[in-house]
């Protein structure tokens, strides 16, 4: 497709296409590598409206350029882009290096952080522990505190015990409960 056609396709995108790609199916099948590269360029466009619309189209194209673009978008300062990137990487790159997500975690938008933490917990990579420990005291959202404590309970060992103990008196009942569960999960000290 020519760039003008790509731009027309981008302009046709609505928010609903993020969750229901039906009308895009045919257009996506016609995209070649050059088109995908053009879309990736548009994602980094200064126009934020055009940027997320291009990302929505790319999110349905399983291509190395898509994956590279989505890795960069995990830290985008835009309400949708990080979520689109996360869902796309989960869909097309289930074996993505966990470090991609660990590195993105501190810089990602607040609404995405609980999802990143849950993924890191599921993947069971202990290299995330220092990042989680740094993020926890800054977490204003009870949902984020809860997901981090849960992940530390699964991934951590005695080194995180003291930090989690600080949350058994948290203002949020659910966080307190999760801190107690996490403490039970941690390996008992051999001292």
């Amino acid at each position: 497709m020519k760039s003008i056609v790509i731009d027309e396709l981008i302009d046709s995108i609505e928010a609903l296409d993020m969750v229901a790609p039906g009308k895009l199916t045919l257009a996506i099948q016609r995209l070649n590598t050059e088109d995908v590269a053009l879309l990736a360029e548009r994602v980094h466009h200064e126009n934020r409206d055009r940027s997320w619309k291009a990302a929505v189209i790319l999110s349905y194209v399983n291509h190395p350029v898509t994956l590279e673009t989505m890795r960069q978008l995990l830290t985008a300062n835009h309400p949708f882009l990080g979520h689109i990137a996360f869902d796309t990487l989960e869909r097309y790159a289930p074996d993505e290096d966990i470090q991609t997500f660990v590195k993105a975690l501190p810089q990602s938008i607040a609404t995405l952080q609980p999802r990143l933490v849950r993924l890191i917990e599921k993947r069971g990579d202990k290299r995330a522990i220092p990042v989680l420990m740094t993020l926890l005291p800054k977490a204003k959202s009870s949902l984020l505190r809860l997901t981090i404590i849960q992940a530390l309970g699964v991934l951590g060992d005695d080194e995180v015990r003291e930090v989690i103990e600080g949350y058994v008196e948290d203002d949020d009942h659910h966080v307190r409960k999760r801190a107690m569960i996490a403490l039970e999960q941690l390996t008992p000290s051999e001292r």
């Binding site: 609505e14 928010a15 609903l16 993020m18 969750v19 309400p79 949708f80 979520h83 607040a110 609404t111 609980p114 204003k140 959202s141 009870s142 949902l143 984020l144």
Partner: peptide
Amino acid sequence: DPLSREVMQMIMGTAMG
């Protein structure tokens, strides 16, 4: 939880219209 409310607004309000 304000963060959860923000996510729901984003999903239902914006993405789902």
